[in-house]
Design a binder for these strands. Sequence first.
DNA 1: AAAGTTCACGTACCTTCAGTACGTGAAGGA
DNA 2: TCCTTCACGTACTGAAGGTACGTGAACTTT
Lengths: 197, 197
Amino acid sequence: MTTRGTRAEQRERTRQALVRESRRLFATLGYGAVGLSEIVRAAGVTKGALYHHFSSKAELFRAVLEQVQEEVAERIAETADAREDTWEQLVSGCQAFLTVSTDPVIQRIMLVDGPAVLGWSEWRAMNETTSGRHLAQVLGDLIEEGTITAQPVEPLTHLLSGAMNEAALWLAASKDPADLDDTQNALVAMLRALRAT
Amino acid sequence: MTTRGTRAEQRERTRQALVRESRRLFATLGYGAVGLSEIVRAAGVTKGALYHHFSSKAELFRAVLEQVQEEVAERIAETADAREDTWEQLVSGCQAFLTVSTDPVIQRIMLVDGPAVLGWSEWRAMNETTSGRHLAQVLGDLIEEGTITAQPVEPLTHLLSGAMNEAALWLAASKDPADLDDTQNALVAMLRALRAT
DNA sequence: AAAGTTCACGTACCTTCAGTACGTGAAGGA
DNA sequence: TCCTTCACGTACTGAAGGTACGTGAACTTT
């Protein structure tokens, strides 16, 4: 094999090829239905290369999931940060999540296989460092400024993120385009319920 | 092997043994970490017997999940049906779900591995025939009687069931016993938001 | 610049697992 | 009593994840 460029460059190229191709395959076929041989063939390398970069199939999946999580978090933050009002940041952020998460590619990796492959607690921890943190942050701010009734933040965070995850999965499978609007309306209604009187 | 009793009896006994032992193992180790050899050893049969009853490992898991789903649905219905008022049925049913689903055994099978092993849509369909149907039923009744603001039932159902699933998973991992109360309070507050003015 | 070291892989192999083919003996019917 | 059915047990296979070790180019050292 003709190795191009410096060693660090080559290393990075191989790693990215593995992550990119496995992300594609995991998303379309699901973690369990994708073999390592299929991945390395698509990436144009061998299993030796894969195990030089990742200690296991699950570790490779973790790398993919991290990438997906960061992308989702970024796209949500983009939308939310465009708003001035904290309350509007919450609402628009939630709506952005519902829109972004409709992508089946994101769904399978982030919402379906993620918890099963890495275990729920690890999956939770990863969420917490990306998009979950934003949600908790905004909710905390809103409680502090008195917009939302004083209460523990964590239960609220999990209730909302769970509601949105499930709704996103359902929306992806639904045919009626009106479902998205209906869901967002119901969600906003629930959010409004949290507001202090 | 000394087969006791009639053929139908024996058949049922082995099937139940397989379901019982695999349920135990799936719950404690997770679907992926349990081998069929381990299951048949625990059940006191061989792989021939397993594949005579179930066409695949996933099918065996499906049988286990069905059993778990029915148990959960029954326990919730028990609590909810004790109430006269439809609204109180919703509230007590939701609270019952949070309490029941705290069991790690139920969690791993029903909430973590279920969607990944069977695929989300099949998992959703199974839910729909058990506990999910009760929730949709009650919500529909409440909308019909005007207690809840008129709106499509499905989005609401998914938002709520998703919120409760995630909350249950979090509660199981949490240490603070006050978390359960906090979550139930937050949930009830969200439910109340749905009420027509 | 030559020799030595590191490292990013490739090759060959092992183990385990889900799944299959086929044999067997008791239950049930004729 | 004979024949069929069926609920398994036994023995095997292919594929999958994972490992041990070799190799040659990139870097370091002298």
